[in-house]
Computed example of a mutant assay.
Amino acid sequence: MKIAIIIRKETADRCTGKGCMRAFFKKEDSFKRYEGMEDVELVAFMHSGGDLEYKINKLKELGVDVIHVSTCMRGKYENYEGLVHELAKDFDVIGYTHGSENGKSRDTVSIIREK
């Protein structure tokens, strides 16, 4: 299973990615669903800035199955819900990475497409 993480551009300017990476490698929080799976590969860690459509096409080329939209996106990205729905056209989307599944100011949106 190939996974990508997308973080908020403005957060990337000052964030090390530690929370997302720790959760991924320890299979915690949103990544707990992969516990016991051996074929899980993180193939992209990117921010929401720049040419997002180009990046999404690259993720398709890489064969990404699931995109985890970071906790900072859920908390501060204005079009969080719209982005999740747009990504869900081509990928399964988990709407947070680390911390509580329930956001402080908005609910987590996750979409698992029917296969």
Score class of each variant (00 low, 15 high):
residue 3 I to A: 13
residue 4 A to G: 00
residue 5 I to P: 00
residue 5 I to R: 13
residue 7 I to M: 15
residue 7 I to N: 14
residue 9 K to L: 06
residue 9 K to W: 09
residue 11 T to G: 05
residue 14 R to T: 14
residue 15 C to Y: 01
residue 16 T to A: 10
residue 18 K to I: 13
residue 18 K to H: 12
residue 21 M to R: 11
residue 21 M to V: 12
residue 22 R to Q: 12
residue 23 A to F: 02
residue 24 F to H: 11
residue 25 F to H: 15
residue 25 F to P: 01
residue 26 K to T: 13
residue 28 E to R: 11
residue 29 D to F: 13
residue 29 D to P: 03
residue 29 D to K: 09
residue 30 S to T: 07
residue 31 F to C: 06
residue 31 F to N: 08
residue 31 F to R: 07
residue 32 K to M: 09
residue 32 K to P: 00
residue 34 Y to N: 08
residue 35 E to V: 05
residue 37 M to P: 02
residue 38 E to N: 00
residue 39 D to K: 12
residue 40 V to R: 08
residue 41 E to P: 05
residue 44 A to P: 08
residue 45 F to K: 02
residue 46 M to Q: 09
residue 46 M to L: 15
residue 48 S to G: 14
residue 48 S to R: 11
residue 49 G to E: 06
residue 50 G to P: 02
residue 50 G to S: 05
residue 50 G to I: 09
residue 50 G to A: 07
residue 51 D to I: 11
residue 52 L to T: 02
residue 53 E to N: 08
residue 53 E to G: 06
residue 53 E to Q: 14
residue 54 Y to C: 11
residue 54 Y to K: 14
residue 56 I to M: 01
residue 56 I to K: 06
residue 56 I to T: 05
residue 57 N to C: 04
residue 59 L to K: 14
residue 59 L to G: 12
residue 59 L to A: 10
residue 59 L to F: 00
residue 60 K to P: 06
residue 60 K to N: 02
residue 62 L to G: 03
residue 63 G to K: 13
residue 64 V to D: 01
residue 64 V to T: 10
residue 65 D to T: 05
residue 66 V to N: 03
residue 66 V to Q: 00
residue 66 V to M: 09
residue 66 V to E: 04
residue 68 H to S: 10
residue 68 H to F: 11
residue 70 S to L: 11
residue 71 T to V: 00
residue 72 C to N: 09
residue 72 C to R: 02
residue 73 M to E: 07
residue 73 M to C: 15
residue 73 M to K: 08
residue 75 G to V: 01
residue 77 Y to W: 13
residue 77 Y to C: 07
residue 78 E to D: 15
residue 78 E to Y: 14
residue 79 N to L: 01
residue 79 N to Q: 15
residue 79 N to I: 04
residue 79 N to T: 06
residue 80 Y to Q: 09
residue 81 E to T: 09
residue 81 E to D: 15
residue 82 G to K: 11
residue 82 G to N: 15
residue 83 L to D: 05
residue 84 V to T: 13
residue 85 H to W: 09
residue 85 H to S: 08
residue 86 E to M: 09
residue 88 A to G: 08
residue 89 K to S: 10
residue 89 K to F: 04
residue 91 F to Y: 11
residue 91 F to H: 07
residue 93 V to A: 02
residue 93 V to Y: 03
residue 96 Y to E: 05
residue 97 T to K: 07
residue 98 H to V: 00
residue 99 G to A: 01
residue 99 G to P: 01
residue 100 S to M: 07
residue 100 S to H: 12
residue 101 E to S: 14
residue 101 E to C: 04
residue 103 G to N: 15
residue 103 G to A: 07
residue 103 G to S: 14
residue 104 K to H: 02
residue 104 K to P: 06
residue 104 K to S: 10
residue 104 K to F: 14
residue 105 S to G: 04
residue 105 S to N: 15
residue 106 R to N: 01
residue 106 R to P: 04
residue 108 T to I: 06
residue 108 T to N: 07
residue 108 T to L: 03
residue 111 I to N: 02
residue 112 I to G: 07
residue 113 R to H: 12
residue 113 R to G: 04
residue 113 R to C: 01
residue 114 E to C: 10
residue 115 K to S: 13
residue 115 K to V: 13
residue 115 K to Q: 12
